[in-house]
Amino acid sequence: MNKVVKDPAAALEGIQDGMTLMVGGFGLCGIPENSIAQLVQMGTKNLTCISNNAGVDDFGLGLLLQAKQVKKMVSSYVGENDEFERQMLSGELEVELIPQGSLAERCRAGGAGIPAFFTPAGYGTEVAEGKEVRVFNGKPHILENALTADFAIVKAWKGDTEGNLIYKATARNFNPMMAMAGKITIAEVEELVPAGTLDPNQIHTPGIFVQRIFQGEKFEKRIEQRTVRTKQ
């Protein structure tokens, strides 16, 4: 089954105002740069974006925020972005903050057909407000619902024409779960190869979860915190 589309425009076809998108990445690591640039160009508005972070002011999802295309962000950590903080504190932007592990599991559950699950994370905090509490093994847990999205946009290192994906290092992060949870999942890859090239033993995301795949034209891969040591 050939899932290849020719460019980001073809990949993102059908994304409309008001839709819910999952966007992979942790910080600026493993984000679908080419698709985000395309979204900015499309100017799609009132988006709900489910993504662990919100990028920085001038890169990643920060670009969508700057263009006021996002109505609501669902994230675990949104520091490092002044425009985000301004929009949130002024009430322009709706924000739902979710513990990182719950966010990952809610995406996984959404893709795995599990409607909800209990977790101890967030019990006794604001996150638990309005949620069912149940005690297991003497410990209180809260009920968290699964998340799905109209489109999930993920980024992988290598992919094949069947949509099988391999990620590199910590650029994997939320991408595999989000790939599972999108009604339509778009994968942007650094290297697109013919089916049969990748070792089936090494596939991280099986192609069944991916509907469209394309090779990104270029990847800036900006580093958020460059930390080094000097050779002795």
Binding site: C29, N52, A169, T170, R172, N173, P176, K221, T227
Partner: peptide, 23 residues
């Protein structure tokens, strides 16, 4: 750039390291 820690700092791994998804 594909290898960072939770503070988004560039990092390395030791022999015997492994990578995995957030879930």
């Amino acid at each position: 750039p594909d290898l960072i820690n939770a503070g988004k700092q560039t990092i390395t791994v030791r022999a015997g390291a492994s990578f995995f998804d957030s879930a």
